Simulated scan of single mutants.
Amino acid sequence: MHSLIKRQLKKHLSDELQNNKEIANFLDAVDKSYENYDEKLSMMHRASTISSKELYEANQRLKEEADQQKNILNSLMEAIHSLTENLNEEQLFDHEKLNEFNAAYLAENISNLASKVSDMTAEKDKLLVSLEVQNQSLNNYAQMVSHDLKSPIRNINALMNWIMEDEKEKFSTNSKENCTLISQNLEKMDKLITGILNHATLGQTEELKVSFDLTETLKEIENTIFVPEHIVFEYADNLPNMYFERDRLEQLFMNLFTNAVTATEHVEKGIISIGYEHDEVYWKFSVTDNGKGIAKKHQDGLFQMFKKLETDNNATGIGLAIVKKIVVLYEGEVWLTSTENEGTTFYITLKKNS
């Protein structure tokens, strides 16, 4: 018992009662009831503190879970809205329910959209199979037509040359010129058919990668095509050793070189420069000439099939389309800068690990 309480009790007791044994026992009992009071009070305080802390932590966890559920709901809502827009579906959600976590309602709409996506995927797979079959048929058709057309064209050209040799003394000047034009047009038709076939079959066969020195390869291409004496090729010192599909790269540069030679035929001293820029992801090349350049109005669509310069009557309009297709095949880009009467630069990037 607290000493102050004990003293207050004794003040109101007579001497006789204070010395009474029963009163003494009563006061001892009261005193014992106060034993460990402070300790118990401290324990209750600690227990109350611990309970409050646990409640606070539980509330924090509940708040975090509620926020997480809200974020998941918002993400699902955004995904469904995106799907409805891409599928051209009508609005599936009631705006009044956007802030409510209605799991059944959400699940129903997700199920509906998933079913539509599944149907679209199945339809897409069917279309891809059909497209593959059609492409194979077109490629077979292109090869067959090319063979059937090229054979008589070459025969006609050979016959024209024989006639010219046997009957040239009998032909007038105009007839000789007309025969020459016929031969030129037959040669152009042969090139056109070859170009169409190359474009149609490009990328249809797998080609093994090999290691090669690019400078040596480009010089071999230079020796393969006709290059007038007044045109020179200049190769950058840092052209790399490559591990790549060599035949396709040769096809790409063959077309660019041929274009550059044609562009510089009229220049007193034509210069064609091949540059290289190091990059970790892409092979980056440039082919620059100091030729006639390309007018701005002719640059749009220059990489499309049969697109050619109005002034170039001998071109087939397929070379740059093949360049574009090869570049796309290797996840790269091709573009140009050009100024009339100053020259043109073609820029090419090809992904190294495509």
Rank of each mutant, 00 (worst) to 15 (best):
H2E: 06
H2M: 02
L4R: 07
I5T: 09
R7S: 09
K11P: 00
L13G: 03
D15Y: 02
E16D: 13
N19I: 03
K21V: 14
I23R: 01
L27E: 00
L27A: 01
V30S: 04
N36T: 11
Y37Q: 10
M43D: 14
H45K: 13
A47E: 06
L55F: 01
L55P: 00
Y56D: 05
R61C: 02
E64G: 01
Q69N: 04
I72A: 06
L73P: 00
S75N: 12
L76Q: 09
T84I: 05
N88S: 08
Q91F: 02
Q91P: 03
E96G: 03
K97E: 04
L98T: 02
N99V: 01
F101E: 09
Y105V: 04
L106A: 07
A107T: 08
K116P: 01
K116R: 10
V117N: 05
E123C: 01
K126C: 04
L128D: 14
L128Q: 12
V129K: 11
V129A: 05
S130M: 04
Q134E: 10
S137N: 08
S137E: 06
Y141V: 02
D148R: 07
W162M: 11
W162T: 15
M164K: 13
E167F: 15
E169S: 15
E169K: 14
N178I: 08
Q184M: 05
L186W: 03
E187W: 00
D190R: 00
K191T: 11
L192Y: 05
I193N: 08
T194Q: 14
L197V: 15
N198V: 12
E206C: 02
E207A: 12
L208Y: 07
V210N: 03
L214F: 05
L214I: 04
N223S: 15
T224F: 14
F226H: 11
V227W: 06
N238H: 06
L239A: 10
N241D: 07
F244M: 07
R248T: 09
Q251A: 15
L252K: 03
L252S: 08
F253G: 12
F257Y: 15
T258L: 04
A263G: 03
E265I: 06
E268A: 11
I271P: 00
I271M: 09
E277Q: 14
E280W: 00
V281T: 14
Y282W: 05
W283H: 13
V287K: 02
N290W: 04
G293I: 01
I294N: 06
K296L: 07
H298E: 12
G301M: 09
Q304I: 07
Q304W: 01
F306I: 09
N313K: 15
T316V: 08
G319M: 03
V323W: 03
K325R: 11
K325Y: 05
V327N: 03
E331P: 00
V334Y: 02
T337S: 13
N341K: 11
E342P: 01
E342R: 06
E342Q: 13
T345S: 09
I348V: 15
S354V: 12
